[in-house]
Amino acid sequence: MNKHFSALIVDDEKLARQMIREYLQKYPHVETVAEAANGFEAVKAITELHPDLIFLDIQMPKLNGFEVLELSERRSGVIFVTAYDQFALKAFEIHALDYLLKPFSEERFDAALKHALEHLSDELPAGIVKKTDNESIERVLIREGSKVHVIPVDKIDYIEAQDDYVQIVADGKSYLKQQALSELESQLPEKQFVRIHRSYMVNIERIGGIELYAKDSRVAVLKNGKQIPISRGGYQKIKKIM
């Protein structure tokens, strides 16, 4: 093997990073290009350095391991390293190469690395983390270059579809995220967010009232005065909820 690989180690505990670095020492063709101690650093390192391999902790400050992958849109070359076994299923659903449970032996690490290097070039099924269970997300993550915004779903007023993007309006600010509205719809809590129009989804807690705008067409008036069109199907949905 004369091909070289780059590796990123993400863990908020220094000792844990140190051990992976140590285990990697006997592989001269695998170079540790960076270490990250939290989610933000990890996203930055992944988008800037594009490492071949990522050793990724799950419970970390700022962002968890899954959120790091979502934001950096990275799927390949991921080996999770965690003390929690309950995320294993989710890890394999997003095609992680392996899942190391802390503490682990050097043999186990070697096996994971060997398997990982052999499968690095495998084609991965495209796609973003889908809502795999009934859990809905509690915060929406948006990346602008290397800057990351974390928006709690409670803060969102409404969301508007714009071509390949969605515009999320929260706390008077608006953010663009590259995602389909229907996908975001499936991730957000369905009791709180209603698709009232092909291009609009609204936080029902923000609705001040519904007004008849013309014959057969209505608008939702938000508490801050903003008006959002309601389609006929959307009106049926919102009538059922409110």
Binding site: E13, A16, Q18, M19, E22, L101, K102
Partner: peptide
Amino acid sequence: PHFIFNSLNSISALTTN
């Protein structure tokens, strides 16, 4: 239990250095 597993992992990391 994760406290115990994480601590054991730290011990494992400390053993060499």
